[in-house]
Amino acid sequence: MAKKQDMAAMLDGFEAAAAKEHEAKETKATVGAVDDSRATALVSMTKSDKERLTAIAKAHGLSLSAFFRLAADEYIATHEW
Rank of each mutant, 00 (worst) to 15 (best):
residue 79 H to G: 08
residue 54 T to P: 00
residue 42 L to W: 11
residue 35 D to Y: 00
residue 77 A to P: 09
residue 36 D to T: 15
residue 42 L to K: 15
residue 58 K to I: 14
residue 31 V to L: 01
residue 34 V to Y: 00
residue 26 E to P: 02
residue 52 R to W: 14
residue 38 R to N: 06
residue 64 L to S: 05
residue 22 H to L: 12
residue 48 S to E: 01
residue 9 A to C: 05
residue 72 A to R: 04
residue 5 Q to I: 05
residue 76 I to H: 07
residue 72 A to S: 09
residue 77 A to Q: 03
residue 72 A to K: 02
residue 61 G to C: 14
residue 35 D to G: 06
residue 39 A to C: 03
residue 73 D to I: 13
residue 48 S to A: 10
residue 41 A to S: 06
residue 71 A to D: 11
residue 81 W to S: 08
residue 39 A to K: 13
residue 72 A to M: 12
residue 14 F to M: 03
residue 81 W to G: 12
residue 23 E to P: 04
residue 10 M to C: 05
residue 5 Q to D: 04
residue 38 R to E: 15
residue 28 K to E: 09
residue 20 K to P: 00
residue 3 K to A: 10
residue 68 F to R: 13
residue 56 I to P: 11
residue 77 A to S: 09
residue 68 F to W: 04
residue 56 I to W: 14
residue 13 G to I: 08
residue 14 F to R: 01
residue 79 H to E: 00
residue 11 L to N: 13
residue 76 I to P: 01
residue 31 V to G: 07
residue 34 V to N: 00
residue 63 S to C: 15
residue 14 F to Q: 03
residue 15 E to H: 10
residue 50 K to H: 09
residue 78 T to D: 02
residue 32 G to Y: 07
residue 30 T to V: 10
residue 72 A to N: 01
residue 19 A to R: 11
residue 12 D to E: 03
residue 5 Q to S: 04
residue 56 I to M: 15
residue 41 A to Q: 11
residue 56 I to H: 13
residue 57 A to I: 07
residue 80 E to L: 04
residue 56 I to T: 15
residue 37 S to P: 06
residue 60 H to E: 09
residue 16 A to D: 10
residue 57 A to M: 12
residue 69 R to D: 13
residue 7 M to W: 08
residue 18 A to H: 14
residue 62 L to S: 13
residue 45 M to Y: 07
residue 67 F to G: 01
residue 70 L to R: 12
residue 22 H to S: 11
residue 19 A to N: 08
residue 6 D to T: 08
residue 46 T to V: 09
residue 69 R to S: 14
residue 48 S to G: 02
residue 70 L to A: 10
residue 4 K to E: 10
residue 64 L to F: 15
residue 80 E to R: 05
residue 21 E to L: 13
residue 40 T to R: 12
residue 70 L to Q: 10
residue 77 A to M: 10
residue 31 V to D: 02
residue 30 T to R: 07
residue 33 A to L: 09
residue 73 D to G: 05
residue 30 T to A: 07
